[in-house]
Write a protein that binds this DNA or RNA. Structure first.
Lengths: 333, 333
DNA sequence: CTGTTAGCGCGTTCAG
DNA sequence: CTGAACGCGCTAACAG
């Protein structure tokens, strides 16, 4: 591999000049510039980014931590992050945290030690204090899907309480009164917020929150199925089920159909996240949108702005959910 | 940030000694070793991986190129790759190719210039020649989901022809004769192989391949829907539809249900890939498995073996599909 | 506008 | 077993 030295020799100039035309951050005469460019061309020169990083103390890499790489949720987010960053010629180093505190911390350490210029974290299991401390460090950090008041300027988040409210409000407006709620793991902030919104809506309609009809599950299809089985086994009247995400809603619906219940004629369902798949099943799932890809894009832009001083960029930090009414919800006769 | 120099001063030894205890690749007396370790401890020393990379000419990073980061397909693959590599303390740099030749080549360049020690490529739009040339380069490369005879030792792939055969064979064994086929984009090798297997099965049952019932689509839910609309508009007898992937199958089924057709009573469906979601819809999709996560794991292991000389590892390159019969397929009366 | 010269932090001979 | 010295490829003052 040709080095900057080879280029300088062939072009008959100094190392510094070659460096200058590479980064074009200083005046170089057109003539010498062309000589250098030509030399690069014939040598097939490609800068060694490792050396650049060492010398400039800037690795041009951003660490991204997500809970999991699979599932319908993080893909779109990663897509946007990669796309935005790649467009600025930065690269993305990924790590998975698996919603486990030890793994999450380990991953953060890992990414930091890799010399990332910044970190984008979708992190769930660690404490607020840890993150506040982290954000005081030398490496800039943005958080997706988490709101911490003390460092809110570094948070890109969804108004989950509002989304929770909207889902339940829709169901209530349809006349339902016997409502079950399948939530995700309560250690997650977004789960608690959605539930909070749910309760607020209930209160507004003067309906009591029935704790026996609230099941905590795991955000996956199978979790939704299990929760629904439990619900059905209670033999109570339930005309609507609100699920804290679309995957659980799908699993729950599938169980109902197996039991011979009709959706939405016998029982209505609403999910959360608006992932693509449930739009293609029968019934099509009503849901509340979670613009996770937009949030990924914003986090990436935050990095461009704060770390690489791109001033052209506008960053929004708060996102609002939106209601999508499809065919899994129906008014009570 | 403390450097190796700071450590050496505090421990009262030379830089070289510190380096030795870090990599413990040379004899160091227990006593001095402990002094160094202590110094590291109190200084909170963390090696600068960039400098390590420059000095050792090894970046400990592996570039991974996938067609897309979202969708149900690549997530599991990325998960396994990250997990295996991370376990060996390597890191993963990702890039998306979007099934476009220019973008794929650009991404490969990008990853190479980042000093990756190896590349794992799920690459679709470039030519065999390009890849053969690429694999002659200094950076080791493995290919997932692609079989090229000249470099088959670097290919981790699924027996797609066999899988295509199995899907169709299942349908035929159920007595179906009026069969439509919704394929993915024919520029993709795996799509062509699946179709080839389909035709082989047909021939075995002495049934002609009806080209008018073969629709080329785009591997997404919406693509399956559109294709199914076309099929329905023909007003021909169709008792079974074979789809080249599960996403298209789901989209196609959803259209049929909207049109009042019953699945599988009126029309049977089989997919390909065995992604999680369609197992939770009604009807549950029969399909052929595509162990993409296993393939990701194997590719990562290949890298560990060939690049980092891990000899403990066993790598398999060829994977066989498996038939999963669920409730979307039914025998003709 | 261009060249010289130090480093960046670490690995790795080569002596001792 | 340990230390001195050089080099990885490039950036960034500082002169000229």
């Amino acid at each position: 591999m040709a080095t900057i030295y080879d280029v300088s020799v062939m072009a008959g100039v100094s190392l510094a000049t070659v460096s200058r035309v590479m980064n074009n951050n200083a005046k170089v005469s057109e003539k010498t510039k062309q000589k250098v460019l030509d030399a690069m061309q014939v040598l097939g020169y490609r800068p060694n980014t490792i050396a650049q990083s060492l010398a400039s103390n800037c690795s041009n890499s951003i660490g991204v931590l997500v809970s999991q790489l699979d599932g319908p949720f993080y893909g779109p987010m990663m897509t946007e992050i990669e796309s935005v960053l790649r467009g600025a010629n930065k690269h993305v180093i990924i790590a998975a945290g698996h919603s486990d505190e030890a793994q999450e911390k380990d991953s953060v350490e890992f990414l930091m030690s890799r010399g990332c210029d910044a970190l984008i974290l979708d992190i769930e299991a660690v404490s607020d204090e840890y993150l506040i401390e982290l954000s005081k460090g030398a490496t800039p950090v943005v958080f997706i899907n988490r709101y911490i008041d003390a460092i809110k300027d570094r948070c890109v988040y969804l108004e989950n309480e509002q989304g929770g409210f909207m889902a339940t409000d829709h169901i209530l407006s349809l006349g339902h009164k016997d409502i079950a709620y399948i939530s995700g793991p309560l250690f997650k902030l977004d789960v608690r917020d959605r539930l909070k919104g749910h309760k607020r809506a209930l209160k507004q309609y003067n309906i009591d929150f029935d704790t026996t009809l609230h099941i905590e599950s795991n955000f996956k299809e199978a979790g939704g199925s299990e929760a629904m089985e439990q619900l059905l086994a209670m033999n109570k009247t339930i005309t609507a089920v609100i699920c804290a995400n679309d995957q659980m809603a799908s699993g729950a619906i599938s169980v109902c159909l197996e039991h011979g219940l009709r959706v939405p004629e016998d029982i209505s369902f609403i999910g959360y996240d608006n992932i693509p798949f449930p739009q293609y099943i029968s019934p099509k799932l009503s849901t509340v949108s979670n613009p996770i890809h937009e949030m990924g894009k914003m986090a990436a832009r935050w990095v461009l702005q704060h770390v690489y001083n791109d001033t052209e960029i506008v960053v929004e930090s708060s996102f609002s959910p939106e209601l999508f009414i499809r065919t899994s919800t129906k008014a009570i006769d």
